[in-house]
């Protein structure tokens, strides 16, 4: 079994045995492959990038070419135990609508995104006066697929507004390492935020 990227490993650790999983923006399918093998999970990955779709097929998962901006109308209410969206929230047209859709088709959701209030990104804007680039945000402003940046505080405010209950939050710092000071000031020191959510 291949080893997962640390953030994906944290996500995988949140998935129980034999769950039905939907992975929104599944990339090369490695997370689902891991869940199929180590958790006996079943389910599908949705992806729009042709290279990701081909790699997902090579990984032997079930991948459906889909545009998340068109919603999840292919799936019935409560069709999945777990709907996962890793590093994709910031790339969709309407993150709020997609979050609602996630928790319509799934009982619980897992969302990860790059925290735009991470101190190194703040430095880019505050000191250098440039749009931030980092490991997690490696695109220049004019070519980035990431169109809706948010911070940990923004996300939690949106969840409150949408009536979404946050079950658990974790953060990872630079190079996907554990955060310093036991997660003190997550909105400052967290580069990646990971949430487990459900309907309130």
């Amino acid at each position: 079994m291949t080893t997962l990227r640390p953030d994906l490993q944290m996500v995988a650790d949140w998935v129980g045995k034999k769950q039905r999983v939907l992975d929104l923006g599944c990339g090369d399918g490695s997370l689902l492959r891991y869940l199929f093998d180590s958790r006996q999970a079943t389910g599908y990955g949705l992806e729009i990038d042709p290279a990701g779709i081909t790699q997902s097929v090579a990984n032997g998962i079930n991948v459906i070419e889909s545009d998340l901006d068109e919603g999840l109308s292919d799936f019935d209410d409560d069709a999945f135990d777990q709907v996962i969206m890793t590093q994709t929230l910031q790339a969709v047209q309407r993150p709020d609508q997609l979050l609602r859709e996630m928790l319509r088709v799934g009982r619980t959701g897992i969302v990860t995104f790059p925290n735009f209030a991470y101190y190194r990104l703040r430095y880019h804007i505050a000191v250098r006066g440039r749009m931030p680039m980092s490991e997690a945000l490696s695109y220049a402003w004019y070519e980035t697929p990431n169109i809706h940046f948010c911070t940990i505080r923004d996300f939690e405010a949106l969840c409150a507004e949408l009536g979404i209950h946050i079950l658990e939050r974790r953060v990872l710092s630079h190079d996907l390492k554990r955060p310093p000071l036991r997660g003190f000031l997550p909105n400052l020191f967290g580069e990646i935020a990971l949430y487990r959510i459900c309907r309130a």
Binding site: T42, S56, V57, N62, V63, I64, E65, D74, D76
Partner: peptide
């Protein structure tokens, strides 16, 4: 076809 396969939890891959 894809939708019907999803509805009944079949293994399916789809590319457009």
């Amino acid at each position: 076809i894809v939708r019907a396969l999803l509805d009944t939890n079949k293994r399916v891959n789809y590319a457009e």
